[in-house]
Design a protein around this nucleic acid. Structure first.
Lengths: 226, 226
DNA sequence: GATGCGATTCGTACTTAGTACGACTTGCTA
DNA sequence: TAGCAAGTCGTACTAAGTACGAATCGCATC
């Protein structure tokens, strides 16, 4: 026993660093990023961490809490622009960053709003947005509107982007083919025209619409600030 | 679409009208509306329908297909404004209707974009939006932007609305209490101010921000049309 | 060192849920 | 009235979350 102990201790400590709540959540995010959220099971996560399922539960209370933790880390990745930046520009920077972060963690978008308990990072983020709007001189009612409207747009855009069948304009052709094959192509002339004459063209990028919409909203908010 | 089966048969058929794909999907939507999407299991659905789990599978190929069918029905509920309506007004009507429908089926929002195969109603809806934008004289690139931007906003708003902790301004107080209790209230001055001085006031309604944002976007789109 | 304790780890097993397989039932048609 | 196709369901397997309690580990103290 004692002799074996010496050997196993060395190996064990080198091979199996102790788990922590943070390591568990981080590994869960990596798994979700890599294989999709539907592949994130406690068993698979334990496998990734080189441990057994029940060990996970000593660091997070359950899967729901794990998801809460993951969402909060997503929020922490959103860039926090300096508070002395012009308010409009600050919102632009933050929203753009949010889009990038959400695109990096597509699984997070449907989760963002469905978590019951807001984490500290989420609260920090919301507080920062409101502070920026307050700097813009918006009265409370307009502030609430601006807040709701920007969030809606960012989440909604991310939701769509997260579920694009393909990224580049390449595989788009096949998708279009499938749809055209399954349904009468003549029934959807505008859909076909948009796809063939625009979406499938070289320079197209869905993401470019983000900036367009963001500017529309920022313009509207600025107008309301007067 | 088919007429009711002959009810004049013996009590067996009266007690257990034959199932159909449509009846299964409708019952699934009712269950999800009533108890939440997480309560929608094949077993519970069978129970609601007065039958056994395996019977479901003779009408829908599996749960995923069932969800596809539900989503398509949600799209069919969105109002289709007359095609001779002024294009801006037509978009307004359609988007508002979409918000109402999505609020009625909160479970559908995260599903909308994640379904792999688009159903006929979804395609019809998209085609109609594009046709309306085309009537507005938008060139293809602006059309794509307008399309993406409106959809993002509507989905994002619905996503937030679907996950509001409470509807009226009433229970809001308790939620605010919890948050304030869990974290240092002084750390989130703007959040507290917005909540206490605006959200918790009598006339507040989150939904009113929808029209505000929608007008911002319609303005922006109209400007781009020139 | 030996010992004792809290922090971790994990083996076992129960529960819920999706669904494959094949047998049984039913209602209509020839 | 026999037979067939459509519809129904009993049984059972698999995947996944997780409760319970025992085994183990790491370290501080004597």
């Amino acid at each position: 026993m004692t002799t074996e102990d010496v050997v196993t201790r060395d190996d064990a400590s080198a091979r199996k660093p102790r788990l922590s709540r943070e390591r568990v959540i981080t590994a869960a995010m990596e798994l979700a990023d890599r294989d999709g959220i539907e592949s994130l099971t406690i068993r698979a996560l334990a496998e990734d961490l080189g441990t057994k399922p029940m060990t996970i539960y000593h660091h997070v209370a359950g899967k729901e809490v794990l998801l809460d933790g993951m969402v909060d880390i997503v929020f922490s990745e959103i860039e926090n622009p300096p508070t002395d930046l012009e308010w409009r520009e600050a919102l632009r920077v933050r929203c753009r960053s949010a889009r990038v972060v959400l695109a990096r963690h597509p699984w997070s978008v449907p989760l963002l709003e469905s978590r019951t308990s807001p984490g500290p990072e989420l609260l920090r983020h919301h507080e920062a947005v409101l502070a920026t709007l307050a700097r813009g001189g918006l009265p409370l009612p307009q502030m609430a509107h601006a807040y709701a409207v920007l969030d809606s747009f960012v989440y909604g855009f991310a939701l769509q982007e997260a579920n694009l069948p393909v990224q580049g304009g390449e595989g788009m052709a096949e998708v279009a083919q499938e749809i055209a094959a399954a349904f009468d192509p003549g029934a959807y002339p505008n859909l076909v025209r948009l796809t063939v004459d625009h979406v499938m063209k070289p320079g197209y990028s869905f993401g470019s619409s983000f900036d367009v919409g963001l500017e529309m909203l920022l313009d509207g908010i600025a107008r309301a600030a007067e």
